[in-house]
């Protein structure tokens, strides 16, 4: 898996946005990927044997040449996956509608009503309605006490895929975005399971983004989720996000951790190995102090949550201690 960040421009300003650290670094005068750079990234996908072009931003559909970029990816026979807020230009929507359903998947992120003015939701629903089975609703839990039930009505109204992708807002290393704290995970798990019960009653299933941990759910809750078709995992791996200037990062929340340049020989395998090695020391720990001795983590069944959360637990102590010289020898 690799995401291609083709735009640093966004038409929303979500407080939990974990791309914030990265957007601040690379915005400026060239906020959109050039066709030449995009072609290099398609070469990389070909070299890596990846048959999807996963486009994200910012808001990727705001790229003035979005239809041309989609066409370039389709010429390489890539399936198009778009991470969008749904506030897209007509030309962008038209170009996605022109793709066969099997070659187009739009992950349309909808915010909680408190962040989403009614006109925004109206536009998002219009986009979802048009995309139909090409689209799936995504939702980021950025506060513990957040209502998600309205998403089920949105799905019924728009006839998009009967599936919701849930994410938990994770912190950037700078910690400047709103995010969920580990001590809130258990409370959120209960909310998710309650939501899953309502969703199941309407034949809607859930899937989970990275950063969830096994211990936030009880055995019974997990059994219920799995029995009702949820796709759930306890993973945190180098996603590989490549920006509009061919800088590769582990993932947006870990923007501060050693970006490298995409070159003509890079493959997903070599890049993933690079980032895995770079963060291996931190992976010994997890988001909770207990993670280090957890059998699930030791067996590799749970990665111990989002690495950005783990890394934010580490601190440096700038101490100096004076001792008698003969004692220091």
């Amino acid at each position: 898996m690799t995401n291609l960040a083709i735009s640093t421009v966004c038409n929303l300003n979500c407080p939990y946005c974990f791309a914030g650290d990265h957007m601040g670094e690379v915005g400026g005068e060239q906020p959109y990927i050039s066709r030449e750079t995009f072609a290099q990234q398609l070469d990389y996908l070909d070299r890596s044997g990846i048959d999807e072009a996963r486009l994200l931003g910012g808001e990727p559909t705001l790229h003035p040449e979005f239809p041309a970029l989609v066409a370039m990816a389709r010429q390489r026979n890539k399936r198009i996956v778009v991470f969008s807020n749904g506030l897209m230009r007509p030309a962008a929507l038209d170009c996605l509608m022109a793709l066969p359903e099997t070659h187009c998947h739009v992950m349309l992120n909808i915010n909680a009503p408190a962040l989403n003015p009614a006109p925004v939701l109206t536009r998002q629903k219009a986009t979802l309605k048009r995309l139909g089975q090409r689209a799936m609703v995504g939702f980021n839990i950025y506060q513990p006490n957040i209502g998600m039930d309205f998403l089920l009505d949105v799905i019924d109204e728009t006839a998009c895929q009967r599936r919701v992708r849930l994410g938990m807002a994770q912190p950037c290393l700078s910690g400047e975005n709103d995010s969920i704290r580990p001590h809130q995970y258990r409370f959120i798990a209960e909310k998710i399971v309650a939501f899953a019960r309502k969703a199941a009653a309407r034949q809607i299933t859930l899937e989970f983004d990275c950063g969830f941990v096994r211990c936030m759910f009880t055995d019974d809750e997990l059994a219920f989720l799995e029995a009702n078709g949820s796709t759930i995992g306890w993973h945190c791996n180098p996603i590989l996000d490549i920006d509009a200037h061919n800088q590769v990062i582990h993932c947006y929340p870990l923007t501060g951790v050693g970006a490298i340049n995409l070159d003509a020989t890079s493959t997903a395998t070599t890049l993933r190995a690079h980032f895995s090695e770079q963060v291996a020391m931190y992976r010994q720990a997890g988001i909770f102090p207990e993670c280090i001795n957890c059998p699930l983590k030791q067996r590799g069944e749970c990665t111990g949550g989002c690495l950005a959360v783990t890394m934010r637990r580490f601190r440096h102590s700038d101490f100096a201690i004076q001792v008698a010289e003969q004692e220091a020898q």
């Binding site: 020391m281 010994q284 720990a285 102090p289 280090i292 580490f314 601190r315 201690i321 004076q322 010289e325």
Partner: peptide, 25 residues
């Protein structure tokens, strides 16, 4: 005469129960 020690600049640490994990970034 006094001498002493200080922590290496790249060292970060975290407490996990009664165990400390130190890393040199």
């Amino acid at each position: 005469m006094k001498a002493g020690y200080c922590c290496i600049g790249g060292i970060l640490w975290v407490k996990n129960g009664d165990t400390l994990l130190l890393v040199d970034d």
